[in-house]
């Protein structure tokens, strides 16, 4: 049991070490990767907060409950001459307490969770609609108003490295498994609504840093929205999280965030190209690693 104890202790300390701020998912050393990312949206931060609250409540309960049990394990063992108190078989008062207290604890978790849930599922007043279509194995992104549309697939160099017995060491590949040829581009500080669906099997579009995960169902549209904090420019990475067949591991979700101005310009360019009949999906394939 001391081991089990160590188990949770280790976990506690580990999470303690990172409770302040989780490292970004692109860190190359893994030992410090122990917790959810705080992320770059209001929702992802609130989820992180809920997660940590629930975690600490569980740690607290564990300390108390495990503490009591460990006390018995140490002091109520026969080798220490403990004699069993066989009258101790029922006590209505404590039984009521340890039924009621958990209920209260649960309520204290359920209320904030419920509020956050309602907030997250409010997709009204979106400023930008993007249709996300999963397929075996990649994503198609379509900007609803402008009609700009392209396919986003696993980047070339990762794809070469990931083949069975490719002889290429994944460590030498930049963002192995988490890179695509055409990332989704979204403006910061804008409420973006994704209209997620699929053409074959069920996929799931997940971007941890945005706190967004929604299944892509063939024949149905799922709505989900996010607003990236102004100024949080960068590339954010996630993966498909619903088993979708052989290459389920190889359809990453990559999003580049740009300022609203840059976004407008970018969208115009793409629109123009598309008008000229250029296939955006074929454009600028990420070059092999080098």
């Amino acid at each position: 049991m001391h081991r089990a104890r160590l188990g949770i202790l280790g976990g506690t300390l580990a999470l303690l070490a990172t409770a302040a701020g989780a490292p970004v998912a692109s860190a190359q050393s893994g030992w410090s990767l122990l917790n959810l990312p705080v992320g770059v949206t209001d929702v992802s931060r609130k989820i992180y907060g809920l997660h940590m609250m629930a975690f600490w409540i569980c740690v607290g309960i564990a300390v108390v409950v495990f503490g009591v049990m460990i006390w018995s394990l140490i002091f109520h063992r026969r080798s220490r001459g403990a004699v069993a108190d066989v009258t101790l078989i029922h006590n209505t008062k404590v039984e009521v307490i340890w039924t009621a207290v958990p209920v209260l604890i649960l309520i204290s978790m359920a209320v904030p969770a419920a509020n956050l849930l309602v907030k997250i599922n409010d997709n009204s007043h979106a400023q930008l609609d993007i249709k996300v279509t999963g397929f075996q194995w990649g994503w198609q992104y379509t900007y609803m108003k402008s009609g700009v549309s392209f396919v986003s697939k696993l980047a070339y160099d990762t794809d070469a490295a990931r083949q069975l017995g490719s002889g290429i060491n994944p460590d030498t590949v930049k963002n192995y498994l988490l890179d695509v040829d055409h990332p989704l581009v979204v403006p910061t500080g804008t409420k973006v609504r994704l209209l997620i669906t699929s053409v074959d099997v069920i996929h799931s579009w997940w971007l941890p840093d945005f706190g967004v995960k929604r299944d892509a169902l063939p024949g149905f549209i799922n709505e989900v929205s996010f607003t990236v904090d102004p100024g949080k420019l960068g590339v954010y990475r996630g993966q498909c999280t619903e088993l979708c067949g052989r290459d389920h591991a190889y359809m990453p979700v990559v999003v580049r965030t740009v300022s609203p101005a840059d976004f407008a310009a970018w969208l115009k360019r793409q629109q123009a190209l598309q008008k000229q009949g250029v296939d955006l999906s074929a454009q600028t394939i990420a070059a092999p690693a080098g």
Partner: peptide, 17 residues
């Protein structure tokens, strides 16, 4: 009803069916 656009599925009907 969802395929017909009811409840949370308005867009399912508009865009797909």
């Amino acid at each position: 009803p969802w395929l017909g656009g009811a409840g949370i599925r308005a867009l399912t009907n508009m865009l797909l069916w």
